[in-house]
Design a protein around this nucleic acid. Structure first.
Length: 804
DNA sequence: AGCACGCCGACT
DNA sequence: GTCGGCGTGCTC
């Protein structure tokens, strides 16, 4: 007899361990760790992952596995190990660690239904009878709005009904209809003779098969290419001359696009110097982490491409992470262009089905390269030769929900298991990475020159306080406006960047100073022009923009701050002839709208591209010669120890968008704090000096990379509860952690209330702390009961990216 | 998590 | 008397 240890799909502390099941006779040969199964769990059925197949079990009242869901394990032995590691590293449940490594389409959904035991409905209460008219099984969801649950429970006690629990699979494989010959090629002519003489079209169909010498073809293709209607096909089908076949296919998000094949470019001396150690590491199968620090436009991508070439030639596979790839179709084009059908692409712009299909291409070893966002780091390759993380500093590589992992950490762990290199690339590396490179933990590769020696665009920093003093109350400085006008005249393009995060357009009364806030969160509401709505960006609360101040009934109620919508309006006022494309969450929420807007700009159907964060990355348009940053300092005021770093990164990235081709570029940075070092040094493209200065700050305030930090956030609907729990937690931390460790708080979180829940936090700063994980685990265990029964939540982030 | 079981107060 | 509220404990 064989037994399987299964991690069940029930995320709670008490079920966060393996449960044993009997393996039915017919599965004993196949079943192996990493496969998904459906198992009975209490009265219901749940999905689970097999972690072990063994010959004994400690437990004696075992139930058998109900169903096997995979023929090949969806988690390789290595990924099972990665899952275990993730669990320890992020303190998440095992099931969450496994689930995060697979496409969402493979997660099970559950349904509870009521089934009629006998076929006779006459015994049922009248109001229930219509439900069971045509079926003997009805979903509880459909029932519970009309019929009280107690009613049903009574009938269950009486034995008329029973609950059935179902596991719904979402892994719908896409199929297409093929039409195939039900005879051999050689018989075609003979069969045509037997057709009635007036059935010309049917004969045509068969001739089509003959001329092409094919035996099967997708139905759609047959109809269009042979130029026939489906009536003649149907008739041939009914005569059994043709037959239908259902074939599984992939949803290909890139199917109607062709990619121009590119060939390797000649590397310059610097690029060659950078690629050599990477290639050595690939050939020698050595694990090493490279930090490729290359200024924007220095040709990092070409180095990636040629390194990958070497990996593939070695018969190995590679993963390339890019930040939210849908934002940079240009990046996909470069990889698809070089490696064609060897590439799978995984990003948030794909539907669940499309992601699942791309994932299956990887699993079936039909591709050797995956280009994707954060979660692509879990691609089920078994023969990894290299992992590349482009724009290494991007915060989207950190997942902000459980399991709170950083893709960089996973990359390094997987690369260790595979003995292969990791390449981190950036023009503005995180301080953590750059410091590690200095210490020799990572190998530093530097690209200081831009390809073709093009100079960096010139940067002008504008003091907006000065503009105000001179009576300019608009959000465009005189200089920026002048340059904008100039570009319009020359027919060149401009990118305007608005860093909306921080404060967006909040609504304030000019008479009494009242700011309209969300009733459920401690955050001011944001004005949206569309529908005159006020929205909360945290809980989604919406209300109409009031005509008068709710406090003092004054009519002088206005919105302040600048959102992209407002900039667009003003832009039209001052430059009525300009054609503007606006890109922000509102204009890009629909699928594909992103690419549409960008291609509109690319085709020069617009003069100005106006947008938020999302336009800062990787865009490359030849005719953009001016980049304007409207408010460079909004981010600096956020309660975040990385604020300066993020500002520097952003300004550098944005500046890199100008003058990438023949035409020289210019950058205008508008700010209220022009003296700030992150703004000054970004203007001078001086990363090294920025690194020095920022490191001093970090050292002084005991932040990374000098200290590791962890953040515990406690939330509950009642503030007194939050405070008392937070207090207990911080006392516990102080008792159990080392003397060198600094424990800050408890204090109210930067946003003290979200969705009617109060939030407090404690920060732990440490250099060396052996007790950390144990202490955190014990804290969670201690409050576990209150977390399930009393609506208390405690979240622990072991390397928070933001303090919010 | 989700479900059953079981123990107490409020109603026909 | 019983209905139904939620605290408690278990799931191989």
């Amino acid at each position: 007899m064989k037994y399987a240890s299964v991690i069940v799909d029930v995320s709670s502390m008490q079920t966060d361990r393996a449960f044993d099941y009997k393996v039915p006779e017919d599965l004993q040969e196949f079943l192996s760790p990493g496969m998904r199964v459906i198992v009975p769990f209490g009265p219901r059925k749940v999905q689970g992952f097999v972690t072990e197949v063994k010959n004994h079990s400690e437990f004696d009242k075992l139930k058998p596995i109900i169903e096997l869901l995979d023929l090949t394990p969806c988690l390789t032995p290595e990924l099972l190990k990665v899952g275990q590691w993730l669990t320890n590293k992020t303190l998440c449940f095992k099931i969450s660690a496994f689930q995060v490594m697979l496409p969402a389409a493979m997660k099970a959904k559950y349904e509870k239904a009521v089934r009629l035991i006998s076929d006779d409905t006459t015994d049922l209460p009248g109001e229930l009878q219509p439900y069971f008219h045509k079926t003997n099984q009805v979903n509880v969801k459909d029932l519970e709005e009309q019929i009280p649950l107690a009613e049903i429970q009574k009938l269950i006690k009486k034995g008329q009904l029973e609950f059935v629990y179902q596991v719904k699979q979402k892994t719908n494989k896409k199929t297409i209809k093929h039409i195939a010959l039900n005879l051999s090629q050689t018989d075609i002519d003979q069969v045509i003779q037997t057709l009635p003489p007036h059935a010309k079209k049917q004969a045509e169909v068969l001739t089509f098969f003959k001329n092409r010498s094919i035996t099967d073809i997708p139905l759609q293709q047959l109809l269009t290419e042979a130029n026939i209607s489906d009536a003649s096909v149907k008739s041939l089908l009914s005569k059994k001359i043709l037959k239908e076949e259902i074939k599984e296919t992939y949803r290909d998000p890139y199917q109607d696009r062709s990619f121009k094949k590119t060939t390797p470019l000649l590397l310059n001396e610097e690029q060659q110097k950078a690629i050599d150690p990477i290639l050595t590491s690939v050939v020698n199968k050595q694990h090493e982490v490279f930090l490729m620090y290359g200024v924007t436009g220095s040709g990092k991508t070409e180095v990636y491409l040629q390194s990958i070439e070497a990996v593939l030639q070695n018969g190995k596979e590679a993963i390339v992470l890019v930040p939210e790839i849908s934002l940079t179709p240009q990046m996909v084009n470069r990889f698809k262009g070089r490696f064609g059908s060897k590439v799978a692409v995984l990003h948030s712009g794909l539907s669940k089905g499309e992601k699942y299909d791309e994932w299956r291409k990887i699993q079936r070893k039909e591709v050797q390269l995956v280009v994707g966002a954060r979660s692509a780091i879990f691609a089920p390759f078994e023969n990894l030769g290299m992992i590349i993380i482009d724009e290494e500093h991007e915060s989207s590589y950190k997942q902000e929900e459980n399991p709170r992992y950083h893709a960089r950490d996973v990359a390094i762990y997987r690369a260790q298991l595979h003995n292969c290199p990791v390449v981190l690339g950036s023009a503005t590396p995180t301080l953590e990475s750059f410091a590690r490179a200095h210490k020799g933990v990572y190998k530093l590769l530097t690209l200081r020159e831009r390809v073709n020696n093009r100079s960096m665009p010139s940067v002008e920093i504008i003091d907006m306080r000065e503009e105000l003093r001179n009576g300019n109350r608009t959000m465009f400085s005189t200089s920026l406006l002048e340059k904008l006008t100039n570009r319009l005249e020359k027919g060149e393009q401009t990118v305007l960047f608005l860093n909306k995060r921080g404060y967006s357009s909040f609504v304030m009364c000019r008479d009494c100073g009242f700011v309209i806030q969300c009733p459920h969160c401690d955050i001011s509401l944001t004005y949206h022009r569309y529908g005159q709505q006020l929205k909360c960006h945290y809980c989604g609360h919406e209300e109409r923009m009031p005509k008068v101040c709710p406090e003092c009934e004054s009519e002088h109620i206005r919105f302040f701050g600048t959102g992209t919508q407002k900039v667009e309006e003003e832009l039209v006022k001052v430059l009525p002839q300009a054609r503007v494309v606006r890109m922000d969450v509102d204009t890009t929420s629909r699928k594909g709208s992103h690419e549409k807007l960008l291609s509109k700009f690319e085709k020069k159907e617009a003069d100005i591209l106006l947008g938020t964060q999302m336009i800062a990355k990787g865009l490359d348009f030849p005719d953009v010669t001016l980049v304007g940053v409207l408010t460079a300092d909004t981010m600096l005021n956020l309660p975040d120890f990385r604020a300066s770093e993020k500002t520097f990164q952003l300004l550098t990235q944005v500046s890199g968008r100008a003058g990438r081709h023949e035409l020289p570029g210019e950058v205008v940075i508008q700010t209220y704090t022009p003296e700030h070092y992150s703004i000054q040094l970004a203007g001078q493209y001086d990363y090294d000096e920025f690194f020095k200065q920022e490191m001093l700050h970090r050292k002084h305030h005991a932040y990374p990379p000098y200290y590791f930090i962890s953040l515990i956030t406690i939330s509950h609907p009642e503030i007194t509860k939050v405070v008392s729990v937070a207090e207990k937690i911080s006392q516990n931390l102080r008792r159990n952690l080392g003397k060198e460790t600094k424990i800050l708080g408890p204090v109210a979180s930067p946003i003290p209330r979200i969705k009617d829940r109060y939030r407090y936090q404690c920060m732990v700063k440490y250099k060396r702390e052996n007790n950390l994980h144990d202490t955190f685990k014990k804290i969670i265990e201690h409050f576990q009961q209150e977390m399930t029964s009393n609506d208390l939540t405690i979240t622990i982030d072991l390397s928070p990216n933001t303090m919010m």
